[in-house]
Nucleic acid binder design. Structure first.
Lengths: 201, 201
DNA sequence: ATAATAGGGTACCGTTTGGTACAGAAAGAG
DNA sequence: CTCTTTCTGTACCAAACGGTACCCTATTAT
């Protein structure tokens, strides 16, 4: 186990990472200075550097943590939504409830990072992994709403891509300060008249 | 009109703005330093400041210019696409051709700015204007594909929102480095088997 | 006790940042 | 020609940046 030699840490790593996740999420990477990170975390700079490495490495840790949490959330929502076409509708509803929440107003940290760090920082790799895993989750949801044997069909892929892309777009919209009521598309799209054919993918 | 007193400018403002638009588009606002702006534009710092003001004001000018250009592009694509449901499909195809282009790989400057500058810089206001105008364009496209008298229906609004959100998501995906071939959803979604009901909005 | 180990906190480092003062150069106006 | 106006370009500024050296304190091992 951990030898636990020397002075014990006075702060909880997980709690600090959670606070810093919110901070980066709100402000982005470049707009967040180490000074601010120190202020929010309550941990002094040298301790941060000893524990998490450079600002870049710290952000990578935050992203890794967020990625796992986010994918888990997707899995939970999909399970909660249930099978069939109804499940797809219910999933989108659940997703939009989250998007309207206080945290959801800031969009998605992963989307933000991939937009900001295009090639320059480690967040770029994470964004690809994130999108691939997110797409895989959506795919299981879609497949469960299709007739058997269509799991690998073109329709399954098209609907998966469309829904994935839509959800990413929704997070962009939320972060750009949209009025939640005016952009709640699913309730409209799922009205009786369009239900069934509405959520084509 | 312009008195033209004093030494004439040695650089073309429009050309410089075009170059800097590409620069900001690629790198974002925070990751682009004045030093780099000087290098790319070929104009020395004091001249830039006299002409465009601070970095923040310069970026605002770039955004304003991009906004107008972008909305004009939307209008052109919609006109080129033609009316009816076929027009919607054709529009999405045209849009995706642009998204796959070299410039399109960097996503949308407006989306990028709204993600990065959330509240801190003038880009935030522009992003709202952009989204509203973009949505308005999409709406005209959608309405032309619906039966008469349905212009203000719930379906029209829902389909407008869905397509708008999808297009924003597409730009996020492109910027995050997706393989253009694997994410070209429209060709799949518009295959004969799904055509008609596929593009529900 | 005492040595060894590791975190806490101050004070500081070199660099880079956005932004400017100032002197010289090029144009029109009288 | 000379005065005024505007742009160019060097050289520079204070402030903020990410990152660290160093000393002190708290803990375990012997």
């Amino acid at each position: 186990m951990d030898a636990a030699i020397g002075r014990p840490r006075l702060f909880d790593e997980e709690a600090v990472l959670a606070k810093l996740t919110d901070l980066f999420w709100r402000q982005g990477y470049g707009q967040t200075s180490m000074t601010e990170i120190v202020r929010i975390s309550g941990v002094h700079k040298p301790s941060l550097y000893r524990t998490f490495g450079t600002k870049e490495q710290l952000f990578a840790t935050v992203l890794r943590r967020y990625l796992a949490e986010r994918i888990a959330m997707f899995a939970a929502l999909i399970e909660q939504a249930g099978p069939g076409v109804e499940g797809v509708h219910r999933f989108v509803e659940l997703f939009e409830v989250d998007a309207i929440s206080e945290r959801g107003r800031d969009g998605c940290l992963m989307v933000m990072a991939s937009n900001e760090l295009r090639g320059t920082l480690p967040g770029y790799d994470f964004s690809k992994i994130y999108r691939r895993q997110m797409r895989e989750q959506i795919r299981t949801l879609i497949v469960r709403a299709l007739p058997e044997g269509e799991a690998d069909s073109a329709i399954a892929q098209a609907r998966t891509d469309l829904l994935t892309t839509y959800l990413l777009g929704l997070q962009v919209i939320m972060r750009s300060g949209a009025d939640p009521r005016s952009t709640n598309t699913s309730t409209l799209c799922m009205s009786p008249s369009t239900r069934g054919k509405a959520r084509c993918a």
